[in-house]
Design a protein around this nucleic acid. Structure first.
Lengths: 341, 341
DNA sequence: AACACTAACTTAGACGTTTAACGCGGAAAT
DNA sequence: ATTTCCGCGTTAAACGTCTAAGTTAGTGTT
């Protein structure tokens, strides 16, 4: 049918007008008469021209109106994380309101920044496993907003994780408690393990570490000591990792009577196992979560947890990004009356 | 620092070579000496040139090596659907093997095809709610592969839903059973309801209808009649919808003793509610699922379901897109006999 | 009648790459 | 010594669009 892809020039020739006019019909309605514009658009639809080639358009304009949302963790992690999807929804709606488009990138190759270097900015959700990606983001000339982790002096959206953790720990802990912590990505290991040495202390200040600080501070105030071997590293907020760790923990001796978990998913898995084992919650075992997912509310007993404003984070991140890339918006001016007129 | 973005020409001038050579250094290693290439790349890194501008590159080459995965349902649904995420993983890895990149598009605006018209092709997962999008896909000059639904003569990937449904229904049904069906998107309604009239009969042949056909065929063979008011429409494979429908169903009278569910998520929710209500599964109530997610295997009692090759579907869809295989392929499924039927 | 303004187009580069076609010097073949 | 060939680079023309500046005709102003 079409031997080759239609171009603006082809269309212009067929309609007997200049390419500029066609272009304007699509992009600047004020530059031509309404009648002509409508005729042109109708003709375009008829002959099968669906609009300007995006690559050419982006090249020429220098902007694409596309924002990339880089999901640090793999999709499979996202799946077990209802928090992420709510966040994405927030971003999505905020972008839509501003006429921008959203593209998701899942995975953590650092090449992504080059592959989609036509986007207007990046929202990066969660600390990427790939450290190179972080470095690339740090030096990217594009606008970058990070969420749930920090880069240099790039804007970032977050809650006060330390305070939140401190808060919930204060609620849960009493002097004399035997406390364990199910931490998330405290170290850079792909498998579950306990933190036997002090390796974690100097690791970058991720949200996990902030939360840990909060927990430990609260514990200290109750004169509770939590040795490193009571602190678990889970590589992901994943049911399987959680189940494994939970099994080990609940069969260890002495069994803790409080477990502070850095995600609801983990906490719930621990809860279920505990119930299966006939352990009474909270009488024999207190459990706290983190995030505030719905499932935590539905579970019996319902989970004590920290609710994050997930969608709100998405909206805020988007606003932060857009406020900086709004370049082309028309700014207000002001008359300053001097003495020469 | 950089007053403006670096370009190939700038770099060429600085290094005293032609733009073609720089370009070749990035794209065609065989076109220049190894020494020179490495020097160029090193210099580029040093002066902060991170590679060719993608928009220009795509424009010139006419290809981007990017494939768009269009997720029909909202991202929140996708992300909480283990089946979808496994599928995505399949696509992702297959693309990576072929040096292609994946971009996810979530939402169902038909404008997406234009917004990202630089991609090399579209994989469309699931029937979009937006019918315009389907039309756009149908006439798109780009490569299009559909999964779990069909468009015209575009290649599509699927399992034999009718056969699978027939299979599991045969396994579950006995003559005299009182059967209900929890269907997925049988009609075009955003809320849960029963199918009182015959409205669904002529609706497009979605996978849901194929499955329904399979169920009904098996029922017929056992001389079981399933009236339309025993067939439920759920708009999404969502826990909440499922819970609501389950509650209504289990309190209805006479209570069915078999429920055929079109997804594991739905089946599990029904199972949990039934157990909560003290209904014995499978003695008093048999339940079958569909998909074969892990949670179905872990549940107690474990769920009898159809295992789909979700990741395999992703791989096949990708291959089809990359023209490595030809058109319509129907993948195998497997009945996993659990304890619920 | 001359001038100024405006609406509605058109012209003519640029945007940053890629790549076919073309040198050019030197090694191998005749 | 001439030819052939090859490795290594360069030149220059696209790719499809946008937009500042220019043109024209028509409308109002003085």
């Amino acid at each position: 049918m079409n031997k080759t892809k239609l171009t603006l020039k082809d269309v212009a020739e067929q309609l007997g007008v200049s390419t500029a006019t066609i272009s304007n019909a699509f992009n600047r309605p004020d530059q031509l008469s309404k009648a002509k514009r409508e005729e042109i658009l109708a003709q375009c639809k008829k002959i099968g021209y669906s609009g300007p080639n995006r690559a050419a358009q982006i090249l020429r304009k220098g902007t694409s109106n596309i924002v990339a949302l880089v999901l640090a963790d793999s999709i499979s992690y996202m799946v077990s994380d209802p928090v992420a999807s709510t966040f994405i929804k927030g971003v999505s709606s905020a972008l839509q309101e501003n006429g921008k488009h959203l593209l998701l990138y899942a995975g953590d190759s650092d090449s992504i920044l080059n592959v989609v270097d036509f986007v207007d900015g990046f929202i990066c959700y969660g600390q990427p496993r790939n450290n190179n990606l972080v470095k690339e983001l740090a030096v990217s000339p594009k606008q970058v907003v990070t969420v749930d982790f920090d880069i240099d002096k790039k804007p970032s959206i977050n809650i006060d994780n330390e305070k939140a953790a401190y808060h919930i720990a204060c609620h849960a802990l009493n002097e004399g408690d035997n406390v364990a912590i199910f931490g998330l990505r405290l170290i850079d290991s792909p498998s579950t393990c306990r933190i036997y040495d002090n390796a974690l202390i100097d690791v970058e200040s991720s949200i996990a570490h902030r939360r840990l600080d909060g927990y430990l501070k609260a514990a200290e105030e109750q004169n509770i000591t939590i040795s490193n071997e009571r602190i678990w590293h889970l590589p992901e907020s994943d049911r399987h990792f959680a189940r494994q760790a939970a099994r080990e923990l609940l069969t260890s001796s002495p069994r803790p009577n409080v477990v502070l978990c850095m995600s609801d998913i983990i906490a719930l898995e621990l809860l279920h196992l505990a119930l299966d084992m006939g352990i009474k919650v909270p009488e024999e075992l207190k459990i706290t979560g983190f995030d505030g997912i719905e499932e935590a509310e539905r579970s019996r007993p319902s989970l004590t947890t920290i609710c994050q404003p997930s969608a709100g984070k998405g909206v805020e991140a988007t606003k932060a990004l857009l406020n900086m890339i709004s370049s082309k918006s028309t700014l207000p001016f002001e008359l300053r009356v001097g003495e020469t007129a």
